[in-house]
Design a protein around this nucleic acid. Structure first.
Length: 427
RNA sequence: GGAGAGAUGGCUGAGAGGCCGAAAGCGCCGGAUUGCUAAUCCGGUAUGUCUCGAAAGAGGCAUCACGGGUUCGAAUCCCGUUCUCUCCGCCA
């Protein structure tokens, strides 16, 4: 959520930004509601002030005066009630509009409405040159007995899967590898709840119960299965004020992620590219409210993500995501797309990680602030997030890039200590 | 799951219908003293929001977990929710 004052002060900028991001918001209605709200506050404050004054006189008033003052107090109470009701209504409408407005955008982010407008920053690593027709991860996993999609479908429906044998070891190894890396980078690691309340989801920028919600919600409760540990890690400091000296706070969480993928039918439905549940190691940061600092932090997170894929020996490219494709909370966003030789006709890039600087967009609604000693007031912190490893997609890239002519898959050096072997052979 | 106790500022903790945005202490900031450090003394020190102001600032209102209610008036009384603690039950 953007600051209301900022929206009103910089209306043209905000309007242009909504345009760039392909979001339609009725900003004029917002301004009208803001004015209404202001008026109601002024009237309400006056009435309350009067009410306080009247009730303050009562204990000292004479017996004769009292009944009249009490009657006056009653009258004022009713008026105050009415104004407050109106104010609530107006504020609800105001908030509805306000929360549709996306974050402002980094001046260097490419402007454009679709993912095709995103800019490739760099391509890293050598794509493998196969002297045979490479298989896709589904065929590979079947040969090596790493994955059971049928069983997943039977038990929970399409989009669920069982990992088996070295598939499991690879999942655990990828998690360990990411955790080891993040520890070395000074992150505090945690495992996190796989469920979270509506208000936390909303604070992070997810819409838990809308029509096209990507979220599984639990009936008769305000809980939802999390789509990412970004939700829980960000929610961790909800309503707190931290000393600015403690920033940046660097955390990382291991969690399951659940996504309904509503409306995504038919798009890359084969295999485990688009699934309803996967394991992820997520990077999260709380930074001082200074775009220069949070941008630097953002670059650090990107660097970590890249080093993780470099370490795995998987070729990838970095995309600077276009304004229209980055989602509401992000101020700037990068994606890593790994080379997936089994995708499409002759291999394609597929998204494996992303990282965003959300500046104060999430913290404003979550009410996460920091305080600078010796100064008045508080400021909303900046939040950042990124994927260290999303297991299923990393697994796809890993299997497809490391396949051999005989159908076996070479285990990347860095994972061998956990997988316990160099190569996964067909059974 | 059952029974009970509780939630107060950055922290600890008093207050039990009006004199309470809230004692005291800690912490922090400014100053005095000080060879340095420590100690001592004095003063200041919540957040949000609206109005006025170029600003410094001044004023109104709100906030004692959250949401309702009672009352002329609620941190204080009542109801609901969330969370914490203790005991019992169950359990990996």
């Amino acid at each position: 959520m953007l600051d209301l004052q900022f929206i009103c002060d910089e209306l043209d900028q905000v309007r242009q930004n909504c345009e760039n991001r392909g979001i339609q918001v009725d900003l004029d209605a917002l301004i009208a509601l803001r004015d209404q709200r202001r008026e109601l506050i002024t009237t309400g404050d006056k009435l309350r002030s009067e009410q306080k004054e009247v009730s303050g006189r009562i204990p000292k008033a004479s017996k004769e005066e009292k009944p009249q003052l009490i009657a006056q107090g009653k009258e004022l109470r009713e008026q105050v009630g009415k104004v407050e009701e109106q104010q609530k209504e107006v504020e609800q409408k105001l908030r509805d509009i306000q929360s549709q407005i996306p974050n402002m955008t980094h001046p260097d982010s490419p402007v454009g409405r679709s993912e095709d407008d995103s800019v490739t920053v760099r391509e890293v690593g050598e794509k493998p040159n196969f002297d045979f027709k490479p298989l896709d991860h589904v065929d590979l996993a079947e040969k090596l007995d790493l994955l059971d999609l049928n069983a997943g479908g039977k038990v929970a429906g399409h989009g669920f899967y069982f990992l088996k044998n070295e598939g499991v070891l690879l999942e655990l190894a990828l998690v360990q590898y990411a955790v080891e890396k993040l520890l070395a980078e000074g992150f505090t690691i945690m495992t996190t709840p796989d469920l979270a309340r509506d208000e936390v989801l909303e604070g992070i920028g997810f819409n838990p119960r809308g029509n096209e919600a990507q979220i599984y919600s639990v009936e008769n409760s305000d809980l939802n299965l999390v789509a990412t540990a970004e939700i829980t890690l960000g929610g961790m400091l909800k309503d707190e004020v931290v000393d600015i000296e403690t920033l940046p706070i660097k955390v990382a969480g291991i969690s399951h992620c659940f996504r309904t993928e509503a409306g995504a039918h038919g798009r890359a439905t084969r295999g485990i590219y688009r699934v309803h549940q996967f394991t992820k190691v997520e990077i999260f940061g709380f930074a001082a409210p200074d775009t220069k600092l949070s941008d630097e932090f953002h670059q650090q997170i990107l660097k970590i993500e890249e080093e993780i894929f470099q370490g795995l020996g998987i070729p990838y490219r970095v995309l600077d995501i276009a304004t229209g494709d980055m989602g509401g909370p992000a101020y700037r966003k990068y994606d890593l797309e790994a080379w997936m030789p089994g995708r499409g006709e002759a291999g394609e890039y597929g998204e494996v990680t992303s990282c965003s600087n959300c500046t104060d967009y999430q913290s404003r609604r979550l009410n996460i602030r920091c305080k600078t000693p010796g100064t008045k007031g508080t400021q909303f912190v900046h939040t950042l997030n990124g994927t260290a490893v999303a297991v299923t997609r990393a697994l796809i890239a890993l299997l497809e890039n490391n396949q051999q002519a005989d159908g076996s898959v070479v285990v990347p050096e860095v994972l061998r200590k956990w997988v316990g072997k160099d190569r996964i052979e067909a059974r």
